[in-house]
Design a protein around this nucleic acid. Structure first.
Length: 357
DNA sequence: TCTGGGGTCCTAGGACCC
DNA sequence: TCTGGGGTCCTAGGACCC
């Protein structure tokens, strides 16, 4: 039988830090943005399992974590280090199975062909042990006939476990879980499902299908399929190049004046331009996103007729788009909390053209 | 009381084309 | 003077993921 092994790293950013701060192993610790003496606007990215019972958790505002700062070791995020670590683990998984796919910075999956179910458990334990021995990193493993179910299984396996779901057990494994446990079901969809009487996955089987479609649109089909244990026979995902690249910044205080905002967007554009150059990538569409002080957001975009590469062209267009947003009637004299700049329509640039352009 | 920064995917309306 | 049915592309917004 063909099963999918899903590898999900435990408390990944923190686990990366523990490899270079062994003195913090088994202590309460968090990776969180700069607290700025309690005025920081960031969040906690990862809390160690020792810090969680004390109330620390990911996505917690830094201002809140700051009130208990004396109870934890506070580490600032170092994304280049986490990306490099992730890359090493991915390279190992690819050496184990050439079809391995990275699904996020701390998740990956690969298919296996096995003769007996007990081999699934053996493979899960083996890959988990190898990752621990080679990289000193803990992980949780889910194995099942489908990518989505294996992901759910890896969540159930946390921390440090291996959960195997046999093909015949998929429906009963999912039945008792809250719908929120399914990938793709967030707070909004959870609310919509609750309103039609579906709190657990098994409830999805009882809601009349047209009612479910009215509640959650095109998601209805795949949700019911999962609940009934009907597994999709999707192709194994190809490795795809990125579709967009962006940068954003949240200011310490909401910004009003156009001059600072123009400088802000220029600095995002220059940093994005360097990344594009590093990747040898052209772009065609530029999007500026503004998050106002009240946390509502707008975005505006504009496309070039042909892929382009110049950083100053990017900056000029971004500034033009931003001026448009700032002078729109919808602004209502609000200040800007967060500024984002994204380019889409990425296009590889061939090296010969690079010098020519 | 407060809520980052990096992404993907889906939907929907309008312009435009045959 | 009024007009179908098919398609693509652009733009804006929003849900969701880690």
């Amino acid at each position: 039988m063909r099963l999918i092994v899903y590898v999900d790293m435990d408390a990944f950013y923190l686990s990366c830090e523990l490899t270079r701060h062994p003195e913090l192993v088994k202590t309460p610790a968090i990776v969180a943005h700069d607290p700025k003496e309690g005025k920081g606007r960031g969040v906690v990215l990862t809390a160690s399992y020792e810090a969680r019972p004390m109330g620390f958790h990911s996505a917690m505002p830094v201002k809140e974590a700051w009130r208990q700062k004396d109870k934890v070791a506070w580490l600032m995020p170092d994304f280049p280090f986490y990306e490099a670590t992730s890359g090493k683990v991915m390279a190992y998984l690819k050496s184990r199975c050439s079809l391995a796919r990275a699904l996020s910075i701390d998740e990956a999956a690969y298919p296996i062909e096995i003769a007996e179910l007990k081999d699934a458990e053996i493979e899960g334990r083996a890959v988990q042990r190898e990752i621990r021995e080679r990289f000193s990193l803990p992980s949780s493993i889910g194995v099942s006939p489908s990518l989505a179910v294996s992901k759910v299984a890896s969540d159930k396996a946390k921390p440090g476990g291996v959960v195997v779901v046999a093909p015949k057990d998929v429906s009963s494994f999912l039945a008792v879980l809250p719908v929120r446990a399914l990938p793709g079901v967030g707070p909004v969809t959870e609310g919509a499902l609750k309103r039609v009487g579906a709190e657990k996955v098994e409830d999805l089987k009882r809601v009349p299908f047209p009612k479910l479609v009215r509640a959650v649109g095109s998601m209805a089909g795949s949700l019911v399929a999962l609940a009934e244990g009907r597994l999709s026979d999707e192709e194994w995902p190809e490795e795809l190049p990125p579709k967009s690249m962006g940068a954003m910044v949240t200011f310490d205080e909401d910004l009003d004046d156009e001059e600072s905002l123009m400088k802000g967007v220029a600095s995002l554009g220059e940093s994005l331009g360097r990344s594009l150059e590093g990747k040898g990538s052209l772009y065609r569409t530029v999007t500026v996103r503004v998050r106002w002080g009240d946390l509502s957001a707008v975005q505006r975009s504009q496309s070039f007729p042909h892929p382009t590469c110049e950083t100053d062209v990017l900056v000029k267009l971004a500034q033009k788009i931003l001026r448009g947003i700032l002078s729109s009637p919808g602004r209502n004299s609000r200040g800007v909390r967060t500024l984002g700049l994204t380019v889409q329509g990425l296009h590889p640039q061939d090296p010969a053209q690079r010098t020519l352009l």
